[in-house]
Amino acid sequence: MARVVRFHEHGGPEVLRIETVTVPAPGRGEVQIRVKALGLNRAEALLRAGTYIETPTLPSGLGLEAAGIIEAVGDDVEGLVLGDAVSVVPPVSMVRWPAYGELATFPAELVVKHPPSLSFEAAAAFWMQYLTAYGALIDIAKLRREDFVVITAASSSVGLAALQIAKTVGATTIAVTRTSGKKQALLAFGATHVVASAEEDLEARLSDIAGRNGVRVVLDPIGGPIFGPLTAAMSRGGILIEYGGLSPEPTPFPLFAVLSKTLTLRGYLVHEILSDPARLEAAKAFILDGLASGSLQPTIARIFPFDQIVEAHRFLESNEQFGKIVVTI
């Protein structure tokens, strides 16, 4: 028996319940983890609300990231043993392999012995954000030293990961945040430039910063009206990678900018990386190398105890965080 988080109906954070259930032993090729820490992601709030790309059968568990100690190992698993300290590369389906619980089971190929220098809190706070940012900036956009790259929602965990990855390449980063309240924190974090989109003329500021070269790469999880000024400031042949849809407003198609500049507007899900073994191995090597060298360092906004999972989700939806929200068990 173990305590897990489930929801019996879609809704706000208040629908989350901590329940005691029987957790089956791991099957062939699976590993069961005694969870020490969880990393929270926007996708989990969307699943809970009924607006995610997966449609769960209720009641449903949830969660994509965990770190802990191996409790049990299924048949045909090699290289992992009881007692190993591990973290989890997010599975393609959190409905099939939910992370929110004292015990969680995952496919062995997604379970990684994380660098010993990482705490469980940090180990639960890096895979999703760095895999998402790596896949967009390195795997797809092929970010280069001479590039200007715009990163919207820059104070989110993915935004901060993208800033760090772009810095390792040597690209010029333009962090876009809604207000100037997080400007100094983003500059201190390493952003080359910061633009407050609700307080400044976004198109004019981006054009002023990037000059005649323009912005070649844009990483955006928002959509909506921001597409206009973003594409207007892009360079010929530039690429805008959309990995979310946070804006409640319609997203216009910037036809003139796309045609005149031969732009690529590219939808992206981290599942592209997770479901391709070769691309996933390359991503894991890049991220683990960055963690070992210190060029990649997960930023934790706040840590909640497991019993406060509802409060943790409320904080997740407040947009007040700077970095990752972690829950400890």
Rank of each mutant, 00 (worst) to 15 (best):
T172Q: 09
E203D: 07
I151Q: 10
V35I: 14
A154W: 07
V112C: 05
D75S: 10
I303S: 09
E14I: 06
D276A: 15
Q321I: 00
T251F: 03
G294C: 11
P298F: 02
F256W: 10
M128S: 09
V4T: 13
L64H: 07
F286W: 13
T55W: 00
T328Q: 06
L288F: 04
G39V: 09
R17D: 02
S87P: 06
A2F: 05
E311F: 06
E65A: 11
G267L: 12
N41H: 04
E19A: 08
V218C: 04
H114K: 04
I209W: 07
L131E: 13
S180D: 13
Q164T: 02
V326W: 02
S293C: 03
I138R: 03
G29K: 13
R42A: 10
A166P: 03
A124M: 12
A210V: 07
P225F: 04
G170Q: 04
E30V: 09
E272C: 01
A66G: 03
F106Y: 15
E272Q: 14
A104V: 08
L219E: 06
S207A: 15
I241K: 06
V194P: 06
L143K: 03
R6W: 06
Y52L: 03
I140Q: 14
A191P: 10
V35H: 14
E78T: 14
A162C: 10
V112R: 11
V88I: 15
A124W: 13
I241T: 11
L47S: 04
D84Q: 08
T177A: 15
V23E: 14
A141V: 02
V218S: 06
A43T: 08
T172M: 06
I174S: 05
L58I: 10
R314C: 06
F7W: 09
L118A: 08
L206V: 13
A104M: 08
E199Q: 11
S119C: 04
P26I: 13
A66N: 08
P26M: 15
R3D: 05
V310T: 15
A45Q: 00
A104T: 08
T173F: 11
S119L: 01
P115T: 11
E320D: 06
P252V: 05
I151P: 04
F126E: 04
N213I: 01
V258P: 03
A104S: 14
L143G: 03
K183F: 04
A166I: 01
T264R: 15
E249Y: 12
D84E: 13
R42P: 01
L316A: 02
P98W: 13
L240G: 01
R17Q: 14
A67H: 09
L64I: 08
S197P: 01
Y134V: 02
S117K: 13
V258M: 12
E19Y: 07
I287D: 03
A171S: 15
A153V: 05
L269P: 00
F7L: 09
H8C: 02
K284V: 07
L255N: 00
